[in-house]
């Protein structure tokens, strides 16, 4: 008894140390498994069925995916997602420049910072409504302003070639504010001694920015990339508010199309919606995988 007691206490202590983190993690892990991981596999499974949400599901194999290949609305949605992805990234440099501009000590600078941050605080729905009124072809401010310079009235949200860009512009407004706040906090961490040293070496202007400041802002840039790309891929509310996917489906993106097919008033093709969701998930997975890999590499480097 006395021989065996010490190792068992040690083992118990070891067990306790190994077990405690898992116990603390358990609720989170369980919820994550049940509400995130499990539905992902459920969606994968559902995408092989034809199901209206009421009757019995019918197995169709890759039928839904084959239909996606010939579905023009799906193609339009893919292209729009790409436009969102590329143009949304403009929020990062724009946010950086506003942050540099606001990163100074003037009386009342906090008020200006708050005002610039304001669009991120208000709801996307409100942003969408404000821009819809701004673009309104008959009563909108945009056409009044264009009138001052003699340009003809345009109906941004009613023109299939312009509508998506109009919505992206509305989306950029809050996203720039978000990137700005990320960079403002990043700028606080910039080492003044390095800036001083660079200045002694004669660096200024763009060279100073590019070679000294921006490299030190890498963590902020990384986060800005992550949130902007994910934000672009899950754009939904602005489209729903501003054009409802129209005119004639020209502003749909994958997430909106999935909603339309699976959950809207005229939808309830659950399998088809799930197939769209799977495609969107795989696209996102490429980016998320890259981000996770980068983070893991950084962690290991430390």
């Amino acid at each position: 008894m006395t021989d065996t007691a010490p190792p068992s206490i040690a083992a118990r202590r070891l067990n306790g140390q190994a077990l405690a983190p898992w116990l603390f993690l358990a609720p989170g892990v369980l919820f994550f498994l049940f509400y995130v991981v499990f539905p992902i596999f459920q969606s994968f499974n559902l995408s092989f069925y034809r199901w209206d949400g009421l009757g019995a599901a019918e197995f169709v194999g890759f039928g839904n995916y084959r239909e996606l290949m010939t579905d023009r609305a799906f193609e339009v949605s893919m292209w729009n997602n790409l436009k969102w992805l590329v143009l949304y990234l403009l929020a990062i440099p724009a946010g950086l420049f506003i942050a540099l501009f606001l990163n100074q000590t003037v009386a009342g600078i906090r008020i200006y910072k708050s005002l610039f941050f304001f669009p991120f605080v208000i709801s996307q729905v409100v942003v969408g409504l404000v821009f819809t009124w701004f673009y309104d072809p008959t009563f909108g401010l945009l056409n009044t302003m264009l009138g001052w310079v003699g340009a003809g009235p345009i109906n941004v949200l009613g023109d299939p070639t312009l509508a998506t860009y109009g919505i992206i512009a509305a989306g950029l407004w809050p996203q720039i504010a978000y990137c700005m706040i990320l960079y403002l906090t990043g700028l606080n961490a910039v080492d003044p001694e390095q800036v001083e040293a660079a200045r002694l070496d004669g660096a200024k202007g763009w060279r100073m920015l590019w070679y000294v400041i921006v490299p030190q802002l890498r963590p902020a840039t990384f986060i800005a990339f992550v949130v902007t790309i994910i934000g672009a891929l899950r754009s939904f509310d602005l489209i729903s508010i501003m054009t409802n996917g129209g005119p004639f489906g020209s502003t749909r993106v994958l997430s909106f199309y999935m909603f339309e097919k699976a959950l809207s008033e005229y939808g309830f093709r659950m399998g088809y919606g799930a197939a769209i969701a799977v495609v969107l998930f795989l696209i996102m997975l490429v980016f998320i995988g890259y981000f996770l890999w980068t983070m893991w590499r950084q962690e290991r480097g430390r």
Binding site: P137, N155, L157, G158, P247
Partner: peptide
């Protein structure tokens, strides 16, 4: 004929 209002899609 132009019977309908312009920009009705909006």
């Amino acid at each position: 004929m132009g019977a309908f209002i312009d920009n009705h899609q909006s």
